Structure formats: C-alpha cells, structure tokens
Computed example of a mutant assay.
Amino acid sequence: MRLELIHLDDAFVGQRAFLDACAERRAVSVDATADGPRVRLWGYDADLARLEAKLGASAGGADGGPVLAFLGSGDFHHVSAMLIARAAATGSRPFTVVHFDNHPDWVRCSSGMHCGSWVNRALGIPNVAKIVTVGVCSKDLQHPEWKGGNLAALKEGRLELFPFAQAPSKVSGDYGAGASHRQEGGHVRWTCIEDIGLAAFGELLLSRIETADIYITLDKDALAPADAVTNWDQGKLSLDDVLRLIGRLAERHIIVGADVVGDYSAPAYAGGVWPYVRKWGESIIDHPRVALAASAVAATNEATNLRLLDAFTEAMRG
C-alpha cells in the first residue's frame, strides 16, 4: 500500500502524532496548497485539470499497488473523483465505489465540479461498475429533485444509496425500486441502516457488491460529532461502525484504493472576485459554525485519523 498526504489546506496542522505515523509509513506528501483555495467547494475545469495533473505526477513512481490518501477538508471531496479515475487507469478490472458520507454528493454542476457533485463524474469513469453511498442523514434527501439529485442513476441501478436514517423523499418522477429504495406513490422510501441494524446492513452491503475490487471513499461528516469535527453537518455513524464495515469489506474484496476527507479547516478561497463571493456565500449557508478550540478539533480528528490509518493499512495489505 502507498500512503499519500494531499495538502490542500492546513487541516493536519496540530496533528503531530498522525503526521509522525504517516512518516513512519513513508507517506508521500503532495503539496497542493496553491491549488486548494481555487478548487475548494468547487473548481473550474482548468483549475481542476492542473490539480489532477499534479496528482498524476505524484504517482509516477508508484508500483501499481493500492493508494490510501488523506485529503483534508470535505470541501475537497470532489478530488476523490480524480483519485478514483487514477485507480481506474492503473487497473484493468471493474470496481465498486463504496462511499461513506452524510451527503449524497450527486447534484448537477454545469461548469467544473463541486464537492457535492463528484458522484456524477465518478459514475462516468471507465471501470466504475457502481457507487454505493452509505450513511446519509442530511437534508439533501428532502425534495431531492428540487436540489438536483441524480435519481436517474438510482433508477438505473448504477447508484445505490443507503441512508443511516431518512424519512421518505417526496418526488414527482418514477424511480422504480432497488435494494436501497422503493417508490410508493409520490415518495421514495429508503432502506435505512438504523431500521435494519448494522449487522444486517453489513450483510446487505456485501450482497450489493458484484465486483471483486472496491474503492472506498470516506467523508468523516458521516461520523457522529464525538468522532470527528468537520466543515459540514454530521451524521450518526460511529467510528466503530465504520471500522467494522471496512473490515467486513476487506474480508470479501480487494481494496484497490481509498481516500479520507472530512478534517476541519478554516475556509480560504481564491480564483477571482466572483468565485470568492459565491463560495463565501455558499459556506455561510452550508457550513455550521465550529465553536471548539483549535486544539480540541485537532485532537478529535487526529485520534480518528490514527485509527483509520491503522484500519486501512491492515485492510489494504497485499
């Protein structure tokens, strides 16, 4: 396994034990701090292409084995689509993306890519057989059509979405039925983890993956606040829940790559006045205020990162 720290922000400042643990594992550090403010929340195609080229160059000496990357804030979750594309380009077999998140990240984005739209980009990557999203309990599934959700992918079966807890979603279209949802009149009813229990969900999740290979992307905003401090509203999965699911996935499947986002960092934007204003306004609406001291934020996220580092290292052993 190859370990990468992709520095897009200052999320890992104050996490000395985590950085030391990464150094012991010979982590490769990718300095993308100049790119971060331009692509934070969303980025134009030209800025994204420059970052993607940098990520491709960083893997130039890799041996073809799986890569585990830590990216910083969940404001950069769209960078995961680049890493998924990189994993697809280095392999020859189809794989399933298992996506832990408090948000579905499936909205439309007409220019560039948004941290809330990257799932659509990933669905178009060759060798991505399906995406399975796990843990959503945000407001994104309330009137999802109004919010630009890609329910068509759900109907086609290329996307399955298992919320942690979610009331039926009011819709006007017909989206059929699948393992994660069923249409009842003007509502989509979801198969929720809270309703069936984690053990039963673990079995269901395994049954929904038809490929030998998987890629795991984890946004820590899927975790309860006791286990992470993020830039976003947070879900209800515990870290222990997620680690158990990762362990079960590793028993059955080959993990061809993984990434972790969701550390807190103070937003910084660049790229011109209009992008700055748009992103600042979006963050005011979507980002909850973090009242904890910086040292407490770093301590909480570091403890979780260390456990995730150990768990993925074990799960991704060749």
Results as ranks from 00 to 15, higher is better:
Gly72Glu: 05
Gly74Arg: 03
His78Ile: 01
Ala81Phe: 01
Leu83Asn: 00
Ile84Lys: 11
Ala85Lys: 10
Ala85Gln: 08
Arg86Ser: 15
Arg86Thr: 12
Thr90Asn: 14
Thr90Asp: 14
Ser92Thr: 04
Ser92Trp: 09
Ser92Asp: 12
Pro94Gly: 00
Pro94Lys: 00
Phe95Ile: 00
Phe95Asn: 05
Phe95Val: 01
Thr96Phe: 11
Val97Leu: 07
Val97Lys: 01
Val97Ser: 01
Val97Thr: 06
Val98Ile: 05
Phe100Arg: 00
Phe100Leu: 05
Asp101Ala: 02
Asn102Ile: 05
His103Trp: 06
Pro104Gly: 03
Asp105Ile: 03
Asp105Ala: 03
Trp106Asn: 15
Cys109Ile: 12
Ser110Tyr: 10
Gly112Cys: 15
Gly112His: 10
Val119Gln: 07
Asn120Thr: 00
Asn120Pro: 09
Ala122Phe: 05
Ala122Glu: 08
Gly124Gln: 11
Gly124Trp: 11
Gly124Tyr: 14
Ile125Thr: 14
Ile125Ser: 12
Pro126Arg: 07
Pro126Cys: 08
Asn127Tyr: 12
Asn127Thr: 04
Ala129Glu: 15
Lys130Gln: 14
Lys130Asp: 11
Ile131Lys: 10
Thr133Val: 11
Val134Gln: 11
Val134Tyr: 09
Val134Met: 08
Val134Ala: 05
Val136Trp: 11
Val136Thr: 08
Cys137Val: 13
Ser138Asn: 04
Asp140Asn: 06
Asp140Cys: 04
Leu141Tyr: 08
Gln142Ala: 15
His143Met: 15
Pro144His: 00
Glu145Ile: 03
Glu145Asn: 03
Trp146Gly: 09
Gly148Glu: 00
Gly149Cys: 04
Asn150Leu: 08
Asn150Phe: 04
Leu151Pro: 06
Leu151Arg: 06
Leu154Thr: 10
Lys155Arg: 15
Lys155Gln: 15
Glu156His: 12
Gly157Ile: 03
Gly157Asn: 02
Leu159Thr: 04
Phe162Pro: 06
Phe162Tyr: 10
Phe164His: 12
Phe164Leu: 06
Gln166Cys: 14
Gln166Asp: 09
Ala167Pro: 01
Pro168Arg: 09
Pro168Trp: 05
Pro168Val: 07
Ser169Asn: 07
Ser169Asp: 09
Lys170Asn: 14
Lys170Asp: 14
Lys170Ile: 13
Val171Arg: 03
Val171Tyr: 02
Ser172Lys: 11
Asp174Ser: 13
Asp174Met: 02
Asp174His: 13
Tyr175Arg: 02
